[in-house]
């Protein structure tokens, strides 16, 4: 049985696509067969973060409309052969997706892949609802910031009421909290919500904490998901996320600010 995981958030710009890309690569590097689906119809971006934007020929909507087969549309990752990407279409009608046709594509993918990662668009419109409808698990990507936390809570409500599992009365979607752009220093200064604060408010299990990191921008500049930057703090934090998704217990890192030396304290920096 393939695990269908939606990466969602409500709010835009919190790191859904960055996280989807990192998680896709990470799971594939562990030997699993993974497909990453970009559900952001009209605003394709996952291809860019994955560095395969020039290899897109057919997209998700082409497959839905029967204009291309899955084999034609799936882009095999050049770094990890067990990973494929199904890009979003750029110009098409947003209403192209519906429960029936998305369900059919997911069924086909489930026969070939162990993990189906759905990169949700922002918002709570049809696209975001489609991305979460068939999910078994949800990675709720949240920044330690008021509007992001509030939107994440809205999404948790949607997961509990608007998903296939909710409609059929099945076991609810397994929810995970992924806190991104975390700055331990600002937390210590009382300027940012802490991990505990966000856990208190959202009340779902913590999957990972990704520190605010310059490596993330560098990674998207290069089209090399940040998890491949194994020296970076963000890369290591995503690696921990993968281990936890696969059932391991891994201690949380990067939660405390680096202690500054007396000199940098005095002279700033």
């Amino acid at each position: 049985m393939a695990r269908i995981i939606v990466v969602t958030s409500g709010k835009g710009g919190v790191g859904k696509t960055t996280s989807s890309a990192a998680i896709g690569i990470g799971l594939a590097l562990k030997g699993h067969k993974v497909v990453l689906i970009d559900f952001d119809i009209g605003l394709r971006n996952l291809d860019l973060i994955m560095g395969c934007e020039r290899r897109v020929v057919y997209d998700f909507v082409n497959v839905i409309n029967g204009e291309a087969t899955l084999n034609q549309a799936l882009i095999k990752d050049k770094r990890v052969s067990s990973l494929s990407i199904l890009p979003a279409s750029q110009t098409r009608d947003k209403d192209a997706l519906n429960k029936e046709n998305v369900g059919k594509v997911l069924d086909d993918l489930a026969k070939r892949f162990d993990y189906i990662i759905c990169d949700s668009p922002a918002g709570i419109e049809a696209g975001a609802m489609m991305a979460l409808y068939y999910a078994d698990e949800a990675i709720v990507t949240t920044n330690p910031e008021v509007s992001s936390v509030r939107d994440s809570d809205r999404i948790l409500g949607m997961l509990a009421s608007r998903s296939r599992r909710a409609e059929l009365g099945l076991e609810p979607i397994k929810e995970h909290l992924l806190l991104t752009r975390y700055s331990p220093k600002r937390v210590e200064e009382g300027e940012m919500l802490s991990v505990e604060d966000v856990e208190d408010i959202l009340a779902i299990p913590l999957l990972g904490v990704i520190p605010e990191s310059q490596a993330v921008l560098k990674a998207s500049n290069a089209g090399e998901p940040v998890i491949l930057d194994t020296e970076s703090d963000a890369g290591k934090a995503y690696q921990d996320v993968i281990d936890r998704l696969l059932g391991e217990t891994v201690e949380f890192r990067f939660l405390v600010a680096e202690k500054k030396g007396i000199l940098s304290r005095l002279f700033g920096g």
Partner: peptide, 16 residues
């Protein structure tokens, strides 16, 4: 400001 944020969020999230 972080504790203000938490307090405000707890209220609005509970309400919603």
């Amino acid at each position: 400001t972080a504790s203000k944020a938490k307090e405000r969020l707890q209220i609005i999230v509970a309400h919603e």
